[in-house]
Design a binder for these strands. Structure first.
Lengths: 209, 209
DNA sequence: ACAAAAATACCGACCGGTTGGTATCTTTGA
DNA sequence: TCAAAGATACCAACCGGTCGGTATTTTTGT
């Protein structure tokens, strides 16, 4: 039993630096336009190190998608509103937080896996699957509070927790496209305002403020 | 006065074949991953012809974005629901039509400019601008009926015609991302159902069906 | 009316640079 | 001591783009 052993090859430094660099560069330029050399340069790591840790550029993409999921996890635990008693309040708090994140240049708030899957869904099943898994994990995390809110407040027929979670995800992804196309983060935030209004109306609340 | 003269370099055959091929290939694989050679092969045209009609790959992207706008125009004129008297009914009919279009493989119903702008917004201002213009044109066309519906039916405060048009656009773009990530067009259609429910609620209608 | 001239459409070989990936060597740490 | 981590050098395929040239159509001068 060697306790000093890292659990699953999570020790090395170059590996995580390469993944971080991929997150930055792919969000800015897309997956195909980002070269391995660029990622290495941004990570301050040699090309030999890259192919020591990853069998291919595609393998890096898969690992970066998994890391993206891990990176999103704190969003569901850390913020103050996650301690609220009412699950609907927690959900609306989450939407507010996602809206507040949409600020500055688009490459700073857009979704790594959302960007990557747009380019790879038809050409790489491995990348598509990894991206899909990351997005699905986000929706499943969201659906916990949504399900509780449905139990507590009731909701219109034919609305499921996962269905609404996917809709929230879609509005966010769509807002990112709008931000990229117009260069205007405020326009993207307006979409999330519509989303919040929809959720509020769905659960039969008066519109606040 | 020579009446047989074509108006503005719209005559050649290779040009439109190259743009059509670009629409197909970029929607399937993305802009960066689609090579000029591939586009030429798909169009059945030589590389020399490509660079005769377009100064660069980027110039083709700009032209293809403009053509994408032209291709979308009939959506606002042809369908039967565009003849309805109530602008809200026309709007809901349009949403229904967009939902019905989401079927089969994702490359068949997703948005060329939406895909392209995701990759190019930070690396090519020309492509970003051309894509943004195409999306904006769609929103402006949508906003005509929305504005009329607001006048006729009234709507909650702080909702503008263009703002709602952008939201509709965002939900569609987001639905495309969901379809690509999951490979499930039905999941993408569910998002548009949420959108239709939102619009219906916004205008104070009872939910139909 | 008609040939010369000019413009347009198109071709495919070719270029320098970049791509993802490999082979080999050196360093590090326990 | 020895395997993992990292670096250097290198490769063949492919990239966007150029080039010299031909075929066809349109314009022009008389």
């Amino acid at each position: 039993m060697n306790a000093s052993r890292s659990p699953a090859s999570e020790r090395p430094n170059a590996r995580i630096k390469l993944i971080d660099a991929a997150h930055v560069l792919v969000r800015r330029k897309g997956y195909a336009a980002t070269s391995v050399d660029e990622i290495c340069a941004a990570a301050g790591v040699s090309k030999g190190a890259f192919f020591h840790h990853f069998a291919s550029k595609e393998a890096l993409g898969v690992a970066a998608a998994a890391q993206w999921t891990a990176r999103a996890a704190p969003l569901f635990e850390l913020p103050p509103y996650t301690k609220l008693a009412d699950p609907l309040e927690r959900l609306l708090g989450h939407i507010d937080m996602r809206m507040a994140m949409i600020d500055g240049p688009a490459e700073g708030f857009t979704c790594f896996v959302g960007t990557m899957v747009q380019e790879s869904f038809a050409s790489s099943e491995a990348l598509r699957e990894a991206s899909g898994a990351s997005i699905t994990a986000y929706c499943e995390a969201l659906s916990v509070d949504i399900e509780a809110a449905i139990q507590q407040h009731g909701v219109s027929d034919r609305v499921t927790a996962m269905g609404l979670a996917w809709h929230i995800q879609a509005v966010l992804q769509g807002a990112f496209v709008v931000a990229k196309a117009t260069g205007d983060a405020a326009l993207a935030r307006d979409n999330v305002t519509h989303l919040k209004r929809y959720v509020t109306m769905l659960f039969g609340r008066r519109e606040s403020r």
